[in-house]
Simulated scan of single mutants.
Amino acid sequence: MNNFSSLKPLIPYIKLTAMSFFFGGVFVAGKTIVGEVEPAIAAFLRFAIATLMLLLILLWKEKQIPIPTPSQFAGLAALGLTGVLGYNLCLLIGLETVSSSRSSVIVASNPVFITLMSVLFLGDRLTRRKLVGIGLSVSGAILVASHGSWNNLTDFSSGDLAILVCAICWASYSVIGRYVLNSLSPLVSVTYASAIGLTMLLPFALHTADFQTVRSLGTSAWIAIMYMGVFGTVCAFLLYYQGIQALGVIRAGAFINLIPVSAIILALFILNEEIDVSITIGTLITILGIFLINSRQKTAIGTNQ
Rank of each mutant, 00 (worst) to 15 (best):
238 L>T: 10
223 I>L: 14
181 L>D: 10
195 A>G: 15
269 F>K: 07
167 A>C: 09
175 V>L: 12
247 L>W: 06
226 M>S: 13
227 Y>G: 01
237 F>H: 11
259 I>A: 15
262 S>V: 03
228 M>N: 12
257 N>V: 00
270 I>Y: 13
200 M>Y: 15
181 L>T: 11
239 L>F: 13
254 A>W: 08
261 V>P: 14
240 Y>C: 09
169 C>W: 01
189 S>H: 09
219 T>K: 13
181 L>H: 06
228 M>V: 00
257 N>I: 00
270 I>M: 10
212 Q>Y: 04
233 T>Y: 08
187 L>F: 08
208 T>C: 05
172 S>T: 11
268 L>P: 02
198 L>M: 15
259 I>H: 12
180 V>E: 03
192 Y>C: 11
192 Y>W: 14
175 V>K: 05
221 A>E: 05
242 Q>C: 06
234 V>Q: 13
254 A>R: 08
229 G>R: 08
259 I>C: 06
182 N>A: 13
268 L>W: 15
219 T>N: 03
235 C>P: 12
205 A>I: 02
209 A>M: 11
229 G>N: 06
207 H>R: 11
195 A>H: 05
252 A>C: 12
223 I>N: 01
168 I>R: 10
173 Y>P: 10
180 V>D: 09
197 G>W: 07
194 S>K: 11
270 I>K: 04
256 I>K: 03
182 N>L: 11
220 S>R: 10
261 V>E: 05
200 M>D: 12
224 A>C: 05
197 G>N: 09
254 A>K: 12
169 C>H: 00
206 L>K: 10
205 A>T: 00
